[in-house]
Protein backbone atom coordinates (compact mmCIF):
# COMPACT_ATOMS: atom_id res chain seq x y z
CA UNK A 1 0.00 0.00 0.00
CA UNK A 2 1.38 3.38 -0.97
CA UNK A 3 1.39 6.21 1.56
CA UNK A 4 0.85 9.76 0.49
CA UNK A 5 0.46 13.21 2.01
CA UNK A 6 -2.95 14.83 1.62
CA UNK A 7 -3.76 18.43 2.50
CA UNK A 8 -7.10 18.61 4.25
CA UNK A 9 -8.84 22.02 4.23
CA UNK A 10 -11.63 22.81 6.65
CA UNK A 11 -13.83 25.88 6.10
CA UNK A 12 -13.75 27.83 9.36
CA UNK A 13 -17.33 29.06 8.91
CA UNK A 14 -19.21 26.12 7.44
CA UNK A 15 -17.00 23.27 8.66
CA UNK A 16 -16.91 21.80 5.14
CA UNK A 17 -13.88 19.70 4.28
CA UNK A 18 -11.94 19.27 1.06
CA UNK A 19 -8.67 17.46 0.45
CA UNK A 20 -5.90 18.09 -2.05
CA UNK A 21 -2.99 15.91 -3.10
CA UNK A 22 0.54 17.28 -3.12
CA UNK A 23 0.44 17.61 -6.89
CA UNK A 24 -2.64 19.83 -6.65
CA UNK A 25 -5.31 17.32 -7.64
CA UNK A 26 -8.26 16.77 -5.41
CA UNK A 27 -8.28 13.67 -3.24
CA UNK A 28 -11.64 11.99 -3.11
CA UNK A 29 -10.82 9.80 -0.12
CA UNK A 30 -11.62 6.28 -1.21
CA UNK A 31 -13.95 4.38 1.05
CA UNK A 32 -14.14 6.93 3.87
CA UNK A 33 -15.06 9.78 1.59
CA UNK A 34 -16.68 11.88 4.30
CA UNK A 35 -13.40 12.04 6.19
CA UNK A 36 -11.85 13.93 3.30
CA UNK A 37 -14.68 15.64 1.45
CA UNK A 38 -17.75 16.83 3.29
CA UNK A 39 -20.32 19.56 3.07
CA UNK A 40 -21.62 20.34 6.55
CA UNK A 41 -25.21 21.47 7.00
CA UNK A 42 -26.17 24.10 9.68
CA UNK A 43 -26.92 21.47 12.33
CA UNK A 44 -23.56 19.79 11.80
CA UNK A 45 -24.70 16.86 9.67
CA UNK A 46 -22.53 15.72 6.82
CA UNK A 47 -24.17 16.07 3.41
CA UNK A 48 -22.61 13.61 0.97
CA UNK A 49 -20.99 15.37 -1.95
CA UNK A 50 -22.48 12.98 -4.49
CA UNK A 51 -25.85 11.37 -5.00
CA UNK A 52 -25.85 8.15 -2.94
CA UNK A 53 -28.31 6.58 -5.40
CA UNK A 54 -26.78 7.50 -8.72
CA UNK A 55 -28.70 4.96 -10.79
CA UNK A 56 -32.03 5.86 -9.30
CA UNK A 57 -33.22 2.28 -9.54
CA UNK A 58 -32.82 1.41 -5.89
CA UNK A 59 -35.50 2.06 -3.32
CA UNK A 60 -34.01 4.48 -0.76
CA UNK A 61 -36.16 2.98 1.99
CA UNK A 62 -34.59 -0.44 1.62
CA UNK A 63 -31.31 -0.05 -0.23
CA UNK A 64 -28.28 0.16 2.06
CA UNK A 65 -26.37 3.39 1.91
CA UNK A 66 -23.18 3.07 -0.12
CA UNK A 67 -20.26 2.10 2.00
CA UNK A 68 -18.48 5.36 1.51
CA UNK A 69 -21.15 6.92 3.69
CA UNK A 70 -20.81 4.38 6.43
CA UNK A 71 -20.02 7.09 8.96
CA UNK A 72 -23.56 8.26 8.36
CA UNK A 73 -25.16 5.04 9.39
CA UNK A 74 -24.81 2.19 6.93
CA UNK A 75 -25.77 -0.68 9.21
CA UNK A 76 -24.43 -3.22 6.75
CA UNK A 77 -20.93 -1.88 7.07
CA UNK A 78 -20.80 -0.55 10.56
CA UNK A 79 -17.92 1.64 11.54
CA UNK A 80 -17.41 0.08 14.94
CA UNK A 81 -18.36 -3.52 14.23
CA UNK A 82 -21.38 -5.46 15.37
CA UNK A 83 -22.33 -8.32 17.69
CA UNK A 84 -23.13 -11.73 16.21
CA UNK A 85 -24.21 -14.48 18.62
CA UNK A 86 -22.88 -12.45 21.52
CA UNK A 87 -19.41 -12.07 20.01
CA UNK A 88 -18.06 -8.69 18.99
CA UNK A 89 -17.07 -8.63 15.31
CA UNK A 90 -14.90 -5.74 14.25
CA UNK A 91 -14.47 -6.47 10.58
CA UNK A 92 -17.00 -4.79 8.25
CA UNK A 93 -17.16 -7.89 6.09
CA UNK A 94 -18.33 -9.96 9.07
CA UNK A 95 -21.12 -7.52 9.77
CA UNK A 96 -22.18 -7.52 6.14
CA UNK A 97 -22.86 -11.23 6.31
CA UNK A 98 -25.29 -11.13 9.20
CA UNK A 99 -28.31 -13.24 8.44
CA UNK A 100 -31.35 -11.04 8.02
CA UNK A 101 -34.63 -11.88 9.63
CA UNK A 102 -36.74 -10.88 12.60
CA UNK A 103 -36.90 -11.75 16.28
CA UNK A 104 -39.92 -13.12 18.10
CA UNK A 105 -40.64 -13.35 21.77
CA UNK A 106 -41.59 -16.96 22.33
CA UNK A 107 -42.35 -16.29 25.97
CA UNK A 108 -45.14 -13.86 25.13
CA UNK A 109 -48.38 -15.92 24.94
CA UNK A 110 -50.14 -13.19 22.94
CA UNK A 111 -47.43 -12.92 20.35
CA UNK A 112 -48.32 -13.94 16.83
CA UNK A 113 -45.46 -13.90 14.33
CA UNK A 114 -46.16 -11.49 11.51
CA UNK A 115 -44.79 -12.89 8.25
CA UNK A 116 -44.82 -9.40 6.74
CA UNK A 117 -42.95 -7.81 9.62
CA UNK A 118 -40.04 -5.53 8.87
CA UNK A 119 -36.82 -7.46 9.17
CA UNK A 120 -34.71 -6.73 12.20
CA UNK A 121 -31.25 -6.96 10.77
CA UNK A 122 -28.74 -6.81 13.56
CA UNK A 123 -29.71 -6.24 17.14
CA UNK A 124 -32.63 -8.00 18.69
CA UNK A 125 -34.47 -6.53 21.67
CA UNK A 126 -33.86 -7.89 25.16
CA UNK A 127 -37.08 -9.85 25.28
CA UNK A 128 -36.81 -11.33 21.82
CA UNK A 129 -35.65 -14.85 22.12
CA UNK A 130 -35.72 -16.46 18.73
CA UNK A 131 -34.37 -15.26 15.42
CA UNK A 132 -36.48 -16.14 12.40
CA UNK A 133 -34.27 -15.89 9.31
CA UNK A 134 -35.71 -14.65 6.07
CA UNK A 135 -35.12 -16.89 3.03
CA UNK A 136 -31.50 -16.62 2.05
CA UNK A 137 -30.54 -14.56 -0.96
CA UNK A 138 -29.91 -16.64 -4.00
CA UNK A 139 -27.83 -15.91 -7.05
CA UNK A 140 -26.99 -17.88 -10.13
CA UNK A 141 -24.99 -21.01 -10.45
CA UNK A 142 -22.65 -20.14 -13.24
CA UNK A 143 -20.31 -22.96 -14.07
CA UNK A 144 -20.95 -24.83 -10.86
CA UNK A 145 -24.31 -26.20 -11.77
CA UNK A 146 -26.09 -24.47 -8.90
CA UNK A 147 -29.83 -24.00 -9.21
CA UNK A 148 -29.71 -20.32 -8.36
CA UNK A 149 -31.53 -17.87 -10.67
CA UNK A 150 -29.68 -15.86 -13.27
CA UNK A 151 -31.54 -12.58 -12.81
CA UNK A 152 -31.84 -10.39 -9.71
CA UNK A 153 -34.84 -11.17 -7.59
CA UNK A 154 -37.89 -9.20 -8.69
CA UNK A 155 -39.31 -8.18 -5.33
CA UNK A 156 -36.19 -8.37 -3.24
CA UNK A 157 -35.72 -5.82 -0.54
CA UNK A 158 -39.46 -5.29 -0.07
CA UNK A 159 -40.99 -5.99 3.36
CA UNK A 160 -41.42 -9.72 3.77
CA UNK A 161 -39.18 -10.43 0.79
CA UNK A 162 -35.56 -11.51 0.96
CA UNK A 163 -32.98 -8.74 0.77
CA UNK A 164 -31.56 -7.96 -2.63
CA UNK A 165 -28.34 -9.75 -3.55
CA UNK A 166 -25.25 -7.53 -3.78
CA UNK A 167 -24.50 -6.09 -7.20
CA UNK A 168 -20.71 -5.74 -7.20
CA UNK A 169 -20.44 -5.45 -10.97
CA UNK A 170 -22.94 -2.59 -11.14
CA UNK A 171 -21.40 -0.88 -8.12
CA UNK A 172 -17.98 -1.18 -9.72
CA UNK A 173 -19.32 0.32 -12.96
CA UNK A 174 -20.83 3.23 -11.05
CA UNK A 175 -17.58 3.70 -9.17
CA UNK A 176 -15.69 3.74 -12.48
CA UNK A 177 -17.99 6.45 -13.83
CA UNK A 178 -17.64 8.54 -10.70
CA UNK A 179 -13.84 8.24 -10.69
CA UNK A 180 -13.82 9.09 -14.40
CA UNK A 181 -15.93 12.20 -13.81
CA UNK A 182 -13.71 13.33 -10.97
CA UNK A 183 -10.45 12.80 -12.78
CA UNK A 184 -11.68 14.44 -15.99
CA UNK A 185 -13.06 17.34 -13.97
CA UNK A 186 -9.69 17.71 -12.24
CA UNK A 187 -7.91 17.53 -15.60
CA UNK A 188 -10.07 20.34 -16.94
CA UNK A 189 -9.54 22.46 -13.84
CA UNK A 190 -5.82 21.91 -13.45
CA UNK A 191 -4.60 21.91 -17.03
CA UNK A 192 -4.22 25.16 -18.97
CA UNK A 193 -6.35 25.16 -22.10
CA UNK A 194 -4.34 24.13 -25.11
CA UNK A 195 -6.29 23.42 -28.31
CA UNK A 196 -3.32 21.53 -29.72
CA UNK A 197 -2.58 19.59 -26.54
CA UNK A 198 -3.99 16.27 -25.39
CA UNK A 199 -7.65 16.16 -24.45
CA UNK A 200 -8.79 16.20 -20.83
CA UNK A 201 -9.66 12.53 -21.19
CA UNK A 202 -6.09 11.74 -22.25
CA UNK A 203 -4.71 13.64 -19.28
CA UNK A 204 -7.19 12.07 -16.89
CA UNK A 205 -6.64 8.47 -17.99
CA UNK A 206 -3.56 7.64 -15.84
CA UNK A 207 -5.21 9.25 -12.81
CA UNK A 208 -8.39 7.33 -13.50
CA UNK A 209 -6.35 4.14 -13.78
CA UNK A 210 -4.58 4.82 -10.49
CA UNK A 211 -7.67 5.81 -8.49
CA UNK A 212 -9.91 3.07 -9.84
CA UNK A 213 -7.45 0.20 -9.86
CA UNK A 214 -5.69 0.77 -6.55
CA UNK A 215 -9.01 0.63 -4.72
CA UNK A 216 -9.75 -2.83 -6.08
CA UNK A 217 -6.32 -4.40 -6.40
CA UNK A 218 -3.94 -2.24 -4.39
CA UNK A 219 -1.76 -1.45 -7.40
CA UNK A 220 -1.92 -0.47 -11.04
CA UNK A 221 -0.92 -3.07 -13.59
CA UNK A 222 1.47 -1.04 -15.65
CA UNK A 223 3.93 -3.69 -16.80
CA UNK A 224 6.50 -2.88 -14.14
CA UNK A 225 8.33 -5.71 -12.42
CA UNK A 226 6.25 -5.21 -9.29
CA UNK A 227 3.00 -5.38 -11.20
CA UNK A 228 4.11 -8.55 -13.00
CA UNK A 229 5.00 -10.22 -9.73
CA UNK A 230 1.82 -8.96 -8.07
CA UNK A 231 -0.39 -10.16 -10.89
CA UNK A 232 1.54 -13.40 -11.23
CA UNK A 233 0.66 -13.95 -7.60
CA UNK A 234 -2.84 -13.33 -6.37
CA UNK A 235 -3.71 -10.32 -8.45
CA UNK A 236 -4.01 -7.97 -5.49
CA UNK A 237 -6.47 -7.33 -2.73
CA UNK A 238 -9.86 -5.70 -3.09
CA UNK A 239 -9.89 -2.94 -0.47
CA UNK A 240 -13.34 -1.68 -1.30
CA UNK A 241 -16.56 -2.29 0.58
CA UNK A 242 -18.23 -5.73 0.78
CA UNK A 243 -20.88 -4.46 -1.64
CA UNK A 244 -18.18 -4.13 -4.28
CA UNK A 245 -16.79 -7.64 -3.87
CA UNK A 246 -18.06 -10.85 -5.38
CA UNK A 247 -19.51 -11.98 -8.67
CA UNK A 248 -23.25 -12.02 -8.00
CA UNK A 249 -24.26 -9.87 -10.96
CA UNK A 250 -21.52 -10.71 -13.44
CA UNK A 251 -22.62 -12.35 -16.67
CA UNK A 252 -22.56 -16.15 -16.70
CA UNK A 253 -19.49 -16.29 -18.94
CA UNK A 254 -17.47 -14.47 -16.25
CA UNK A 255 -18.39 -16.59 -13.24
CA UNK A 256 -15.38 -18.18 -11.55
CA UNK A 257 -15.44 -21.93 -12.17
CA UNK A 258 -14.46 -22.72 -8.59
CA UNK A 259 -17.18 -20.79 -6.80
CA UNK A 260 -20.95 -20.47 -6.96
CA UNK A 261 -22.26 -17.12 -8.09
CA UNK A 262 -23.19 -15.89 -4.61
CA UNK A 263 -20.02 -17.04 -2.86
CA UNK A 264 -18.49 -14.50 -0.51
CA UNK A 265 -15.08 -16.15 -0.52
CA UNK A 266 -12.10 -14.07 -1.54
CA UNK A 267 -11.37 -16.20 -4.57
CA UNK A 268 -14.86 -15.53 -5.92
CA UNK A 269 -14.24 -11.81 -6.20
CA UNK A 270 -14.38 -10.97 -9.91
CA UNK A 271 -14.29 -7.22 -9.26
CA UNK A 272 -10.57 -7.15 -8.48
CA UNK A 273 -10.01 -9.55 -11.37
CA UNK A 274 -11.74 -7.14 -13.74
CA UNK A 275 -9.89 -4.12 -12.35
CA UNK A 276 -6.47 -5.77 -12.68
CA UNK A 277 -6.94 -6.79 -16.32
CA UNK A 278 -8.70 -3.53 -17.18
CA UNK A 279 -5.64 -1.70 -15.86
CA UNK A 280 -3.36 -4.09 -17.77
CA UNK A 281 -5.27 -3.17 -20.94
CA UNK A 282 -5.02 0.57 -20.26
CA UNK A 283 -1.24 0.20 -19.85
CA UNK A 284 -0.85 -2.54 -22.48
CA UNK A 285 0.83 -4.67 -19.81
CA UNK A 286 0.52 -7.89 -21.77
CA UNK A 287 3.20 -9.81 -19.89
CA UNK A 288 1.60 -9.04 -16.55
CA UNK A 289 -1.76 -10.31 -17.73
CA UNK A 290 -0.27 -13.49 -19.19
CA UNK A 291 1.54 -14.08 -15.91
CA UNK A 292 -1.71 -14.51 -14.03
CA UNK A 293 -3.72 -16.09 -16.81
CA UNK A 294 -1.38 -19.07 -17.02
CA UNK A 295 -2.66 -20.31 -13.66
CA UNK A 296 -6.21 -20.30 -15.05
CA UNK A 297 -5.39 -22.47 -18.07
CA UNK A 298 -5.48 -26.25 -18.18
CA UNK A 299 -1.70 -26.56 -18.56
CA UNK A 300 -0.30 -29.33 -16.35
CA UNK A 301 1.63 -28.20 -13.25
CA UNK A 302 1.72 -24.45 -13.95
CA UNK A 303 -1.94 -24.26 -14.88
CA UNK A 304 -4.91 -26.03 -13.33
CA UNK A 305 -4.07 -29.36 -14.90
CA UNK A 306 -5.74 -31.70 -17.33
CA UNK A 307 -8.31 -33.08 -14.90
CA UNK A 308 -9.54 -29.76 -13.54
CA UNK A 309 -9.72 -27.96 -16.86
CA UNK A 310 -9.39 -24.23 -17.48
CA UNK A 311 -11.16 -21.59 -15.42
CA UNK A 312 -13.11 -20.24 -18.36
CA UNK A 313 -14.83 -17.54 -16.32
CA UNK A 314 -11.55 -16.03 -15.19
CA UNK A 315 -10.00 -16.33 -18.65
CA UNK A 316 -13.03 -14.76 -20.37
CA UNK A 317 -13.10 -11.93 -17.87
CA UNK A 318 -9.36 -11.39 -18.24
CA UNK A 319 -9.54 -11.20 -22.03
CA UNK A 320 -12.57 -8.95 -22.20
CA UNK A 321 -11.45 -6.61 -19.40
CA UNK A 322 -8.04 -6.29 -21.06
CA UNK A 323 -9.74 -5.51 -24.39
CA UNK A 324 -11.89 -2.82 -22.79
CA UNK A 325 -8.82 -1.29 -21.15
CA UNK A 326 -7.00 -1.28 -24.48
CA UNK A 327 -10.01 0.40 -26.13
CA UNK A 328 -10.09 3.08 -23.46
CA UNK A 329 -6.36 3.63 -23.93
CA UNK A 330 -6.90 4.11 -27.65
CA UNK A 331 -9.98 6.25 -27.17
CA UNK A 332 -9.89 7.83 -23.70
CA UNK A 333 -13.14 9.73 -24.26
CA UNK A 334 -14.88 6.40 -23.73
CA UNK A 335 -14.48 7.30 -20.06
CA UNK A 336 -17.56 9.49 -20.38
CA UNK A 337 -19.70 6.36 -20.70
CA UNK A 338 -17.52 3.82 -18.91
CA UNK A 339 -20.35 2.82 -16.57
CA UNK A 340 -22.57 1.96 -19.52
CA UNK A 341 -19.79 0.02 -21.23
CA UNK A 342 -18.96 -2.04 -18.14
CA UNK A 343 -22.60 -2.74 -17.36
CA UNK A 344 -23.42 -3.75 -20.93
CA UNK A 345 -20.41 -5.97 -21.42
CA UNK A 346 -19.91 -7.48 -17.98
CA UNK A 347 -22.97 -7.15 -15.74
CA UNK A 348 -26.34 -8.90 -15.83
Amino acid sequence: MTSEVVWKHRDAVTGSISSIRTEGWSYWGGENDSDFNAEIEPLGGDIPSVDPYPTGNEDPSTAPMPTRFKLNGNVFNTEYGCIIDGIMQSRPEDCSRIPRGYWIDEDDPNYTPDPNAEPDTIFGGATRTRFIPLPSVTGTGGNTGSSLPTTPLQNCGQPGQPPCPPTPCAKMAERAQKVAQETVRDAIRNTPYDPKGPSSYHIALPYFDFNFTTLYTGHRVDGSTSSISALSGGGGVNNSSPQEQGQQDFKNEFIDADFPRNSTKRGADQVHHFAAYFSAGINLATLSSYGHSVSDTNLPIFGRGVSKGPNSGDLNLANKAYDLGARVRKQPNLLYKIEELIKNEFCL
Binding site: V294, N298, P300, V306
Partner: peptide, 25 residues
Amino acid sequence: SFLLLLLTQGVDSLNSLSLGMSVFV
Protein backbone atom coordinates in the same frame (compact mmCIF):
# COMPACT_ATOMS: atom_id res chain seq x y z
CA SER B 1 1.58 -30.45 -22.26
CA PHE B 2 -0.03 -29.76 -25.63
CA LEU B 3 0.36 -33.39 -26.61
CA LEU B 4 -1.15 -34.54 -23.33
CA LEU B 5 -4.12 -32.20 -23.72
CA LEU B 6 -4.65 -33.21 -27.32
CA LEU B 7 -4.54 -36.91 -26.53
CA THR B 8 -6.76 -36.76 -23.47
CA GLN B 9 -9.25 -34.00 -24.28
CA GLY B 10 -9.00 -33.23 -27.97
CA VAL B 11 -8.38 -30.04 -29.88
CA ASP B 12 -10.92 -27.97 -27.92
CA SER B 13 -8.80 -28.25 -24.81
CA LEU B 14 -6.24 -25.94 -26.41
CA ASN B 15 -8.78 -23.12 -26.76
CA SER B 16 -7.83 -21.54 -23.45
CA LEU B 17 -4.20 -21.29 -24.47
CA SER B 18 -3.34 -18.36 -26.65
CA LEU B 19 -0.12 -18.14 -28.62
CA GLY B 20 0.96 -15.17 -26.53
CA MET B 21 0.45 -17.09 -23.32
CA SER B 22 2.48 -20.01 -24.64
CA VAL B 23 5.29 -17.67 -25.61
CA PHE B 24 5.12 -16.11 -22.15
CA VAL B 25 5.38 -19.52 -20.49
